[in-house]
Design a protein around this nucleic acid. Structure first.
Lengths: 158, 158
DNA sequence: TTGATATCATTTGCATACGAATGAATTTGA
DNA sequence: TCAAATTCATTCGTATGCAAATGATATCAA
């Protein structure tokens, strides 16, 4: 229903506006935001199908703790691209499941230090191979060359 | 903190495991899911900076109604890639703001027909040019050729 | 040294997202 | 034709995601 959708009750051919109006050329499906959202949706569906133990944000938190070891809640959030409010919720749920533990920083009392428990460590080591399969399945429609190109271009707009 | 992080209290050089363990090669930042999420984050930030009247999902709903005219709630959801529960929330909030209106389908009483109000029509026509700027700004780091490639590859994994 | 500024964590409020369950209405198929 | 299967909309519960406000703690600078 763009501007050129004209209703005419009069006899004879309806006068149709010349379609020089940019409004009618806007197609949601061609916008990068929409395509990014859809690609992300497909990836999340693949993730959920392979890993039901954790959500993607929870996995990201555990994977990063596995990669770098103990760190503060805020620092962890910065590393996995979550703001303070979001990372708190994620970490609290992991803590409630016994996958991470908290500790206080002696020098800086503001910091809430977070680290993997033995359970969390075992869990993430079990899941990382599945995560690699998830990445592969997400990228399955692409050739190796295309994968490199996609990652490079996504990196540029990040 | 991968498996090769070895602590040794003994004298002499510590025995370090050969890093043939795939576990230590997993870097979150290199996973397509993480990069997709970050690219999406940046796009959402650009959107919010340019359009404060609507959220991206609300914009998508109005833009699609503008494009195709009246449709059922479920059909709209399918077109903008939202499940039934999500689209209901979005549409209800648009209705509360007087941007869309509901109607019943005579033939099929299950359908909730949704259409733009005059206000909604004016709003989306005002915002579409801004949305085009948002797309441009999001893709600004890329050349025209790269934009085509990115959209094509994203389309392949969607 | 101490007042201004900055950082960290927390809380609140709002808006997606989606799985699962449910009831109403429609379509299908034997 | 009518019982079974489908479709549509709604509701509930859980989990992000982020802006804004707040209190505790650190750091900086005059």
């Amino acid at each position: 229903m763009g501007r050129s959708a004209v209703s005419s009750g009069t006899a004879g051919p309806a006068l149709v506006e010349a379609n020089d109006d940019a409004m009618d050329d806007y197609h949601l499906q061609e916008q990068v935001g929409f395509v990014l959202r859809k690609a992300n949706q497909r990836h999340l569906a693949i993730f959920a199908a392979r890993i039901s133990d954790l959500t993607p944000p929870q996995f990201a938190a555990l994977a990063k703790l596995h990669e770098i070891g103990e760190t503060s809640q805020n620092q962890l959030g910065a590393l996995i691209a979550m703001d303070a409010a979001t990372v708190k919720g994620v970490i609290d749920r992991l803590k409630a499941r016994g996958l991470v533990d908290f500790g206080k920083h002696e020098a800086d009392k503001r910091l809430l230090m977070v680290k993997l428990t033995a359970e969390g460590f075992a869990m993430i080591e079990r899941l990382i191979p599945l995560a690699e399969q998830i990445t592969q399945e997400t990228l399955a429609p692409l050739t190796a060359r295309e994968i490199g190109t996609l990652m490079r271009l996504l990196g540029k707009i990040t």
